[in-house]
């Protein structure tokens, strides 16, 4: 039995995410989900820390997110990669958690487009953000609202495209670009305010 289980685990490690999901749906065996856990749990955990700061909260959230992912796995369409799918659950779950914690906090967002060519400024802004030292960046991110933090991480940590972010946040492309621009501006201003203008 133990040997059979061992062989199974070795076999699973050679499967793609999609093949593992097919096996979960076909057999319902938890061992297959264990393989996905090994691939993604720490990544989800780190994303949760980036979102909520507290490691204890991040542990609990990771547990809930992974259980939720298993229960919803039949809804995985395969249109995106599994990583994008599970990070979508992660961001939404963390945002919900933070909103629950700070019910009174009002986050102001408008779906306004101001005519600026957002693509053009992207390159310069990215360079500025990439110059921020890691320790400082970590602190600054927690000064932002959960929505700003999430969109910044999606863009610069997960390297999601506008289209992918649009799907996660259920917004139009222009609204995503605008939110991203504002979040980036706020992060940059915060950096300048905290560490001086450069």
């Amino acid at each position: 039995m133990e040997t059979a289980e061992k062989i199974l685990v070795e076999d699973i490690s050679s499967l793609s995410d999609r093949q593992i999901i097919e096996q979960i749906l076909l057999t319902g065996k938890t061992v297959y989900f264990g393989a996905l856990y090994d691939r993604y749990a720490n990544k989800v955990y780190r994303k949760c820390i980036s979102m909520v700061k507290s490691r204890e909260d991040a542990r609990d959230l990771t547990h809930d997110i992974l259980v939720k992912a298993f229960l919803k796995i039949s809804s995985f369409q395969g249109n995106s990669s599994f990583s994008t799918w599970i990070y979508t659950i992660t961001y939404n779950h963390c945002i919900d958690f933070l909103r629950q914690k700070q019910k009174n906090r009002v986050v102001e967002y408008n779906n306004v487009t101001d005519g600026h060519d957002l693509e053009e400024v992207d390159e310069i802004e990215n360079k500025k953000l990439f110059e921020i030292e890691v320790g400082r960046l970590k602190e600054l991110l927690f000064e932002l609202s959960e929505d700003d933090r999430a969109i910044i991480l999606m863009k610069y940590q997960d390297e999601m495209s506008i289209e992918q972010i649009r799907t996660v946040l259920k917004l139009s492309s222009s609204a995503v670009k605008m939110r991203l621009k504002r979040a980036r501006d706020r992060l940059r201003k915060l950096y300048e305010k905290t560490y001086g203008t450069r």
């Binding site: 720490n42 780190r46 980036s50 990771t62 970590k138």
Partner: peptide, 14 residues
Amino acid sequence: FNPFKSLNVHDELP
């Protein structure tokens, strides 16, 4: 170098 990629890289779940 992308500092966002280096956030929390040493954190692991028990």
